[in-house]
Measured scan of single mutants.
Amino acid sequence: ETQAGIKEEIRRQEFLLNSLHRDLQGGIKDLSKEERLWEVQRILTALKRKLR
């Protein structure tokens, strides 16, 4: 995994995270989306740690 590859994956995950946040802010309670949001946040945290 290169730095560029990790950064690209971070961009993808952040896009997905923002999309999930928008969907959930629409007021629709969706447990699967909430679980996915937490999963994406965990992935992002792990990726950012790899960059250090």
Rank of each mutant, 00 (worst) to 15 (best):
L17P: 00
G5I: 12
I43C: 04
K50Q: 13
E1W: 12
A4I: 15
R12S: 04
V40L: 08
I28C: 07
A46T: 08
G26E: 10
V40C: 06
E9S: 04
D30R: 01
N18R: 12
Q41R: 10
T45C: 07
K7V: 09
G26V: 07
E35S: 09
G26I: 11
R36M: 14
L37E: 01
I10Q: 01
L37S: 07
G26A: 08
V40I: 12
S19T: 10
L37P: 00
Q25H: 12
E8W: 06
R49E: 15
D23L: 06
R42T: 06
E34T: 12
L44R: 00
R36L: 11
E34I: 14
R42L: 08
S32M: 12
D30N: 06
K29F: 15
E39Y: 03
L44V: 04
Q41N: 05
R52F: 14
Q13G: 03
E39S: 03
Q25F: 07
R42H: 07
E34K: 12
T45N: 09
G5N: 09
T2Q: 10
K50Y: 04
A4C: 04
R36H: 07
L31K: 12
N18D: 13
I28R: 05
D23F: 06
I28A: 07
H21L: 15
E39D: 05
I6N: 01
E9F: 05
H21I: 15
L16H: 02
L20C: 07
E9G: 01
Q3H: 11
T2C: 08
T2P: 05
E34R: 13
R42Y: 04
I43M: 08
E39R: 03
E39V: 05
E8R: 10
Q3A: 11
Q41A: 07
R42V: 07
A4K: 10
W38I: 14
L24Q: 04
I6E: 01
D30Q: 03
Q3C: 11
L17M: 06
E14N: 02
L51K: 01
F15S: 15
K50L: 12
L20Y: 02
L51S: 01
F15L: 15
S19R: 13
L24R: 02
I28P: 11
A4T: 06
K48D: 01
L20W: 01
Q3R: 10
R36I: 05
E35P: 03
Q41H: 12
A46V: 10
H21T: 13
A4V: 06
E9T: 03
E1C: 11
R42W: 06
I10P: 00
L37A: 05
K50A: 13
E34D: 04
R49M: 11
Q13K: 05
A46C: 11
K33W: 11
E14T: 10
L51A: 02
E34S: 11
D23R: 03
R52T: 14
G27C: 08
S19H: 05
Q25L: 10
E35N: 08
E35H: 10
L16R: 02
L31C: 09
L17G: 01
Q3M: 15
L31G: 08
K29Q: 12
R49G: 04
L20K: 00
W38L: 13
L37C: 09
L24N: 04
Q41Y: 12
S19E: 13
L44C: 02
G5H: 14
K29W: 15
K48W: 11
A4Q: 10
I10N: 01
Q41L: 15
I43K: 09
G5C: 15
R42A: 12
S32H: 13
L20T: 00
Q25D: 08
Q3K: 10
D30F: 02
L51Q: 01
R52V: 14
T2A: 11
E1Q: 09
W38Y: 12
E34F: 15
Q3S: 09
